[in-house]
Amino acid sequence: MMPYLVTVRRRRPDGRRRGLYVPVLPVLLVLSPLLLLAVPAGLIACRVAGMSPMGALRGTGQLLWALPGTRFELDLGRTAVLVSVR
């Protein structure tokens, strides 16, 4: 299943919390013109590295489909960051 929401929560040193909710589909639609530049650049990078473009595309797809349910937590002193992909 494709991820549809990325949640970023941050606890400041003073104890207050902030949350940022990023819907994936609208961001993807806004950034889709950049895909027109990224695809040829990716193909060129695959050729230079001697990789199969279809293998790289398959690996990227598998990575994106595995993202839902991922949680990344970072604690640094009194500041904490949580990134959750749903």
Rank of each mutant, 00 (worst) to 15 (best):
L34C: 06
D75Y: 10
V6P: 00
L5S: 02
L29T: 10
L34K: 00
L63W: 15
A41Q: 02
L43Y: 05
L29I: 09
V83D: 03
V8M: 11
S32W: 10
G55A: 08
G50Y: 05
Y4N: 14
L57H: 00
V39G: 03
V8I: 15
M51Q: 15
G59P: 05
A38T: 04
G19P: 04
V81Q: 04
R12V: 05
T7S: 08
P23K: 08
R47L: 09
L82F: 06
A45H: 00
A66F: 04
L31W: 03
E73Q: 08
M54T: 07
R11A: 12
V81I: 11
V24Q: 00
R10C: 10
V22D: 06
M1R: 01
V22T: 12
V39A: 09
G19E: 13
R47G: 12
P53K: 01
R12L: 15
F72Q: 08
L57N: 02
L37R: 01
R12M: 14
R18F: 11
P68N: 09
R16V: 10
A49G: 01
L74Y: 12
L57Y: 05
M51T: 09
R47V: 01
L20A: 11
G59I: 05
T79S: 11
R71P: 01
G19V: 10
G19N: 05
V22F: 07
A66R: 10
P13L: 12
L76E: 13
V39T: 09
L63T: 14
M54R: 08
V81A: 02
L76W: 13
L5G: 00
G55S: 04
R18V: 10
